[in-house]
């Protein structure tokens, strides 16, 4: 697992997915010419590994902004809340039922808006 992550970090750090054939293209983009919510995430990772936040945001803003959220989510999932009522409350508010629908809505809005921006 650690080796796989290290390999990916090396790969995405050293090669820009935007300019190498080696990296798979998004099938949705290939088929429709429209960007899906995940398009640009490989490039975003590459730019992030180079601490190039601006370009990472341009590649996939949603991915960059969701990293803290996902990291905290992983933390809760693996470390749990350790019986802390405060952590439990945060978890319910940020990863509970309502939050999940907010996440879905954000993804769909991002999907639509990024294509509108692209087309205009």
């Amino acid at each position: 697992m650690v080796a796989a992550i290290a390999a990916l970090v090396w790969l995405y750090g050293n090669y820009n997915p935007g300019s190498h054939l080696l990296f798979p293209k998004c099938p949705f983009f290939v088929l429709t010419g429209l960007e899906c919510p995940g398009c640009g995430s490989q490039r975003a990772i590459h730019h992030l590994l180079h601490l190039n936040i601006g370009q990472a945001l341009q590649s996939n803003m949603l991915l960059v902004l969701s990293i803290p959220y996902l990291a905290l989510g992983f933390w809760f999932e693996f470390a749990g809340t350790r019986g802390s009522p405060k952590a439990e409350r945060i978890r319910t508010q940020m990863y509970g039922y309502r939050a999940i629908w907010v996440v879905l809505t954000v993804i769909v809005i991002f999907w639509v808006v990024r294509n509108l921006v692209q087309l205009s």
Binding site: L62, L70, G73, E77, W101
Partner: peptide
């Protein structure tokens, strides 16, 4: 509830399946 994993799936690979995963995450909750 697989929320984090399904968001990752949505962002990195398979949009439709990832979104189904997110909907099921809401259902778990």
């Amino acid at each position: 509830n697989w929320l984090v994993e399904s968001i990752l799936a949505t962002l990195f690979c398979c949009l439709p399946f990832g979104i189904v995963g997110i909907i099921y995450a809401a259902k778990v909750d």
